[in-house]
């Protein structure tokens, strides 16, 4: 709970730091990208504080390449 609050607080701080300048200069496209990145970052960061584990992209990469890696290792041993 405390972790989630701290992350949300950090997110608000980041928005307060970057957003006003973007809006003042009418860079609405940049602001939209910024907000989507911020939303993604907040979701992922809060997820790590939850008991439910965040899916690890490295798992998929290992699943894809490990059989071939084993094969290569066998050839070289």
């Amino acid at each position: 709970m405390l972790g989630t609050l701290a992350i949300l607080f950090a997110g608000a701080g980041i928005a307060a730091l970057e957003l006003p300048a973007l809006l003042r200069r009418h860079k609405f496209k940049d602001a939209a990208i910024f907000l989507s990145l911020l939303a993604l970052g907040l979701i992922l960061a809060i997820w790590t504080a939850l008991p439910q584990e965040l899916p690890n992209p490295l798992d998929w990469i290992i699943w894809m390449f490990e059989p071939w890696g084993e094969q290569l290792h066998r050839i070289l041993s």
Binding site: I7, E18, L19, A21, F34, L37, L38, G41, A45
Partner: peptide, 11 residues
């Protein structure tokens, strides 16, 4: 402006 929000995902 993208470094800080991307940093959250990176963390």
């Amino acid at each position: 402006p993208f470094y800080l929000p991307l940093g959250l995902s990176l963390l």
